[in-house]
Computed example of a mutant assay.
Amino acid sequence: MKEWLSNIKGGKRFWKQVSITALLFVSAFIITIILENLFPNYNTGTIALRRDSWLTLTIFAISTIILPAITEETFYRKNMISFQNKRMLISTTLLSMFLYAIEHSLTIWGIFLTMIWALPLSISYIKTKNIYVPMTAHFIGNLLGNGIDVIITVISMI
C-alpha cells in the first residue's frame, strides 16, 4: 500500500498514464455495453450481486470497487504476465486476460466481452511496467461504474 500511495503522489507522468488507461478501460466497458445491446439474446454468463440491504450493499461496494483493483491487477497482470521474451509476453498476457475473463463470466460471449475489459489494463501494465497504473485505473473505472449502482441503491433505500 505504501508503494501504491507513493505512486499516486508521483506527479503528472503517473496520472497521465492512469488517465489514459482509465479512459480506455471505461471505453472498453462502453464497447461491451454496445455489443450486449446489439446481441441481446446472447447470455453473458455474469451474476448480479444482491444489494437489497445495507450489509449486502456494503459487501457489494467493497467486492466490486475496492478489492478487484488490488487483487485482480496483482494476480492477473503482475504475477502472470512475463517479460521474459516477446513470445512469453504475448502468451502470458492472453492467458491472464482469459483467466480474468472466466473469473467474471461463464459463457463464451461473456468471456469475449470481459477480455475486452482486460485489454487496456494489460497493455497499460506492459507499456509502463508499473502495476500501480492499471491498478489505479481499474479502481477509477470500478468506482465510476459500480459507484453509480451504490448511489442509486442508497437513494432507493432512503
Rank of each mutant, 00 (worst) to 15 (best):
E3M: 07
L5W: 14
S6N: 13
S6G: 10
S6I: 03
N7C: 08
I8F: 10
F14E: 07
Q17R: 05
V18N: 02
S19E: 05
S19G: 15
I20H: 03
I20N: 05
T21E: 05
A22F: 12
A22Q: 04
A22H: 01
F25G: 04
F25I: 09
F25Y: 15
S27P: 01
S27G: 15
S27H: 01
S27T: 11
A28K: 00
F29Y: 12
T32P: 06
I33T: 11
I34L: 14
L35W: 03
N37S: 12
L38F: 15
F39Q: 11
T44W: 05
T44K: 13
T46Y: 04
I47M: 14
L49E: 15
R51T: 12
D52T: 13
D52Q: 14
L55Q: 12
T56F: 13
F60C: 10
F60Q: 05
T64K: 08
I65R: 03
P68W: 06
A69K: 02
A69T: 06
I70K: 07
T71R: 07
E72C: 08
E72F: 06
E73L: 01
T74S: 07
F75M: 11
N79R: 11
M80V: 10
S82L: 13
S82D: 10
S82H: 08
S82T: 09
K86H: 12
K86W: 09
R87T: 15
M88L: 14
M88I: 14
L89E: 09
L89Q: 13
S91M: 13
S91C: 08
T93K: 01
L95D: 05
S96R: 04
F98A: 12
F98Y: 15
F98E: 06
I102N: 04
S105K: 05
S105N: 14
S105H: 10
T107K: 07
W109T: 09
G110D: 03
G110V: 06
I111D: 06
F112Q: 02
F112L: 15
F112N: 06
L113K: 00
T114L: 06
M115Q: 04
M115S: 06
M115N: 03
I116M: 03
I116Q: 02
I116N: 02
I123H: 01
I123V: 15
I126Y: 08
I126P: 05
N130G: 05
N130I: 07
N130R: 08
I131H: 01
V133E: 04
A137K: 04
F139G: 00
F139K: 01
F139P: 00
I140F: 09
L143R: 01
G147T: 12
V154T: 12
I155K: 13
